[in-house]
Amino acid sequence: MLQLVDFVVRNRFFLVFVLLEILSMWLVVRSNNYWGATYFNTANYYVAKALTISNDAREYTRLGDINSNLAHENAQLRAMLTDLQQQSPPNAPAGYLPDSGFAERFTYSVAKVVDNETHYQNNFITIDKGTKDGIAPGMGVISATGVVGKVRVCSENYSIVTSILHSQFMVSTKLLRSNEIGYAKWPGKNPNEIDLVDVSKYTKIIKGDSAVTSDQNAVFPPGIMVGRVKSLEVNQNQTFYNIVLDLATDFPNLSYVYVVKNNQLEEQQGLRNSIEQAK
């Protein structure tokens, strides 16, 4: 008996070691069984809470990646959306069936804004995609929330976009509820507001109505948000409303944009040119 006690005392570290190892191994084996869902894992509330904090910190460093992934996803979703919309236009008569080439004429590519100005009379935006990525002058540019502008010049890797905040840029715009078409044009002051001109004063315009790009538009896909009616007034001497729209695109904080390519633009413009030459 004394010998046994003596043995235990002499080898107590080894015995504790063996005991702990057996306990560990037992835990390993037990948690390998799929039914052995234990309490001691990351499903535990406090553990999960702690891990969430750690993940938040990590995610913060990866926000750039996450943003660009979302932007790519947006581009795909937009392409799908215009496809669907063009295959069954919401306000077309029952017999109208667009051919698939027309419905799928818009393709999108994502670009990052590398330089953005909003303070001048004529503002331009620089994006990080150029001819190498298939960007060409004349293509439309939109953001996740609304129209942005039109590509003006391209180099190999960069392009300059005429922002809609440009004194000579006009977008054919439709008011959704009153179904009126006019032109959006920037007066050159506030980067959050844009004027809508050429809307006849004999129609009823509702405050807060959405203004979207119209179907008579070769550059932008139809139905892209331009803004919302903020205020309207009638000038007695004129036949048009003075409408001010709240711009849908947040220009001061623009970070990713989508370049819209209309695959049938050349065809459309070629036809147009042939008439104008004949005149």
Binding site: F13, V16, F17, L20, E21, L23, S24, M25, W26, L27, V28, V29, R30, S31, T38, F40, N41, T42, N44, V47, A50, L51
Partner: peptide, 26 residues
């Protein structure tokens, strides 16, 4: 030995490998 086991188990709980870190650390 005991600190080793506790530290190992703590790390195990956070990485869903119950027992492995404990065994190695002990």
């Amino acid at each position: 030995l005991l600190i080793g086991f506790l530290v190992g188990i703590t790390v195990d709980i956070f990485s869903n490998t119950l027992g492995m870190h404990a065994a190695a650390t002990v």
